[in-house]
């Protein structure tokens, strides 16, 4: 079991996902689109979410206390 955190348009939520193997960043983006469309992400239900909504998003992968933690997030190029 992994926890995928999805951030979209200022909203952020965790959703557990079953992973039988290591999945690519493209897979993560595709899964996230389906989860958001289906209402599987708390606070984030967009039935008409475009398939390319997460094209420019970054997938961060960390080891969490209870399994892998994945973060699908917008790019953050700005600071100054």
């Amino acid at each position: 079991m992994a926890i995928l955190n999805i951030t979209y348009q200022g909203y952020s939520a965790d959703v557990p996902i079953e992973l039988e193997r290591t999945i690519s960043d493209a897979d993560v983006r595709r899964i996230a689109v389906e989860l958001v469309r289906s209402g599987g992400v708390p606070g984030l239900q967009l039935a008409n979410l475009p398939a390319d909504a997460f094209t420019h998003y970054v997938v961060d992968r960390f080891d969490g206390d209870h399994g892998p933690r994945l973060f699908l997030r917008p790019k953050v190029p700005f600071g100054a």
């Binding site: 917008p74 790019k75 700005f78 600071g79």
Partner: peptide, 18 residues
């Protein structure tokens, strides 16, 4: 590091190792 997204909806503070 401190960084934010272009649309101003997301930001992070994260240490170098991550």
């Amino acid at each position: 590091h401190a960084a934010m997204s272009a649309d101003g909806s997301y930001g992070l503070v994260r240490w170098e190792e991550r």
